[in-house]
């Protein structure tokens, strides 16, 4: 029996692994799951910003425009004790100045999240939930998350809001106003 050299062994091994992967991909199986935050359970504890293995966190604030009231006095944008409704740091709630405020007309303003700046602390989400329609909420960004087996945020999440969802439904989006707002 001839001795197999290293190069031939590697070639055979590569073919075997490649065939296995192709076979696996062609067969139906359980869909991969990813971590996501359920907005209905999230209590905006702030741990998403500090516990994620990615720094800054893979959790970002997202905005549902159909739900937003475009308020001038925005609980997500302004400090609770803000003396003026302007863009000064003394008035803004977001510690990273990640919310852009744009005047639309009259007393209506549009709020846009700058994801590059957002660290997922959830302060704005809490403010919006307390004084507004709850149009801001936290979501794990798929392009940032490394999908750890044991998610460091899920481990510490006090409300169990972080859980696995099918990859095809990886975002739990709020798209419609709550029933009371539609009223």
């Amino acid at each position: 029996m001839s001795q197999v050299n290293r190069r031939d062994f590697l070639r055979v091994a590569a073919v075997a692994v490649g065939s296995g992967v192709a076979l696996k991909a062609s067969q139906p199986g359980a869909e991969a799951t990813v971590w996501q935050i359920d907005p209905a359970l999230c209590v905006q504890c702030g741990r998403c910003a500090t516990n994620c293995v990615i720094n800054p966190s893979a959790v970002k604030c997202v905005h549902s425009y159909p739900i937003c009231g475009y308020c001038d006095l925005c609980g997500a944008y302004l400090q609770p004790a803000a003396k003026t409704r302007d863009t000064g740091a003394e008035s803004q709630l977001c510690p990273m100045a990640a919310i852009q405020r744009t005047h639309i007309e009259g007393v209506y303003y549009q709020y846009t999240i700058d994801e590059e700046l957002c660290v997922g602390c959830g302060k704005c989400v809490k403010g919006c939930a307390m004084f507004g329609n709850g149009s801001l909420y936290l979501q794990v960004k798929r392009d940032l998350c490394v999908n750890c087996n044991d998610c460091a945020i899920a481990r510490e999440c006090p409300s169990g809001a972080m859980h696995r969802v099918p990859l095809s439904e990886s975002y739990l989006l709020k798209t419609d106003p709550p029933p009371e707002a539609q009223g």
């Binding site: 400090q79 609770p80 004790a81 003394e90 510690p95 990273m96 602390c121």
Partner: peptide
């Protein structure tokens, strides 16, 4: 950066 103590104290004082 989220809860910078000096900044929180200043904001509290201002409020």
């Amino acid at each position: 950066p989220v809860d910078q103590p000096e900044l929180l104290a200043l904001r509290e004082e201002y409020a």
